[in-house]
């Protein structure tokens, strides 16, 4: 069984160490002790400058420690970004996908694109024309057959 007794640095001791620190005479161990002392929240105003200096050089907290709230926040932001990118991609590609090429030149003017689409549809023959054309072809074929029959009929 071991008993840990926490050593609490006195102000006098701290003052001495700070003085040595500024003179560049402190050891690594002394600076560690000073850092612990200066991380206390109940220190008088006079230590503010040293607190600022030491907090700047204080190593970042252990990153290996798993912080669930931070993890949730980060994944939430990432998910929101991903969804945003998805919707932007969906709507932008939908808009950008409508286009026309005239003589190899890309046209993006909506009215012009729609007009060209209408023109292409108008180029198709109507149902009536289709029927009439087919009837005409049948009649022409029959006429040929009749002519052939006349020519081949023995007199």
């Amino acid at each position: 069984m071991s008993i840990n007794i926490k050593y609490k640095m006195t102000f006098e001791h701290a003052d001495r160490l700070i003085e040595r620190y500024y003179e560049g005479l402190t050891s690594v161990e002394e600076e560690r002790k000073l850092r612990i002392f200066l991380s206390r929240k109940d220190l008088p105003e006079k230590y503010k400058t040293e607190q600022a200096i030491f907090s700047y050089f204080t190593p970042a907290p252990n990153k290996n420690k798993f912080d669930f709230t931070r993890y949730l926040r980060r994944t939430g932001i990432a998910a929101a970004l991903l969804i945003g990118v998805f919707f932007a991609h969906f709507f932008l590609t939908n808009r950008a996908a409508s286009y026309a090429y005239i003589d190899g030149k890309k046209i993006t003017d909506i009215q012009e694109i729609k007009l060209q689409a209408m023109v292409s549809l108008a180029n198709l023959p109507s149902e009536q024309t289709l029927i009439l054309e087919n009837l005409q072809l049948i009649l022409e074929e029959n006429r040929f057959e009749e002519k052939g029959n006349i020519l081949s009929t023995p007199q």
Binding site: S98, I102, Q116, A117, V119, S120
Partner: peptide
Amino acid sequence: NKKGVVMVELTGEMLEDYDFSFFKSLM
């Protein structure tokens, strides 16, 4: 993309007024 050719592609909200979901033509 050739000369003397008109190609049109319409998708999405551009076809809201029509009965199509996708339209592509070549003249």
